[in-house]
């Protein structure tokens, strides 16, 4: 099985990221009542009264306290889950090619496997790792919420989980591409972070809002309309396919030296 080496190489990182995501999911559900009671403390209420944004914040806090779907959006799906998913995309992608080239282990593969075999095995095993990690995090949250008796519509929870899975695939694919560009592992890591920041900032401007991948992943719109968003999902997957193809063409034509 030609994918054996890639599975071995990625399995530890996958397990660690899955454990972090699942652990945070469980903790986020479990601390809900603590968070709500902390927000209800007289000191917090007092400072809200004195703040210019007091009314808005008070209504936000009341919503977090009384609506578990909103709590899930504001504390998990639209926040921690998405952030850790983005981190998982970097962790799983940045060493893919750069480490093999930096350590010169790529010569074990070159000549013994075709370039397509090397490229597709590496990238697609990573796709599977991303899906397992992100799905695991989402499921851990949904199950914990159910066990603790919180009302979270499953369509809504699965819509977010699905969107974050698809969005993370794109982030991973971007990371796999940047990993091809450098012989050192540090450079793709830093470039990925810069790209993520760029994608996040793009959401603040009208002209670049279409680049706001994080807006699609942890979108507030899911609260009102709990769907996977077929059109943006297709666009994200198409971009993924384009970067995958460009990455292969890049790898196919590059000198391994």
């Amino acid at each position: 099985m030609k994918s054996y080496k890639e599975i071995k190489a990625i399995q530890m990182r996958t397990v660690i990221m899955l454990a972090i995501l699942a652990g945070l999911a469980i903790v986020t559900v479990m601390i809900k009542s603590t968070v709500v009671s902390a927000l209800g403390l007289p000191q917090v209420q007092e400072s809200l009264k004195n703040s210019s944004l007091g009314k808005t914040l008070a209504s936000e806090i009341s919503r977090i306290a009384n609506d578990f779907s909103y709590y899930s959006y504001s504390q998990w799906f639209g926040k921690t889950y998405m952030q850790i998913a983005a981190l998982a995309a970097i962790v799983l992608s940045f060493p893919l090619f750069s480490k093999e080239r930096e350590k010169r282990t790529i010569y074990l593969l070159i000549g013994r496997m075709g370039r397509w075999e090397i490229y597709s095995t590496k990238v697609l095993i990573g796709y599977v790792a991303v899906l397992i990690t992100i799905f695991g995090g989402g499921i851990a949250y949904i199950l914990t919420a159910n066990i603790m008796g919180y009302a979270l519509p499953s369509t809504m929870a699965f819509a977010w989980t699905f969107r974050i899975m698809v969005g993370t695939l794109l982030l991973y694919q971007i990371g796999a591409y940047t990993s091809l560009l450098f012989k050192s592992q540090v450079k793709p890591f830093l470039l990925d972070i810069a790209i993520y920041i760029g994608l996040g900032i793009s959401g603040f401007f009208k002209q670049t809002k279409f680049l706001d991948l994080f807006g699609y992943m942890g979108g507030k719109t899911v609260l009102k309309n709990p769907t996977i968003g077929i059109f943006p999902t297709i666009i994200v997957l198409l971009i993924c396919a384009v970067i995958f193809t460009l990455g292969y063409l890049q790898f196919r034509s590059m000198d391994i030296c």
Partner: peptide
């Protein structure tokens, strides 16, 4: 770019996993 699979290569730097 695809190599010829009936070749076995030992590079100058003996890098392994």
């Amino acid at each position: 770019p695809n190599g010829v699979k009936k070749v076995s290569f030992v590079p100058e730097e003996k890098s392994l996993y």
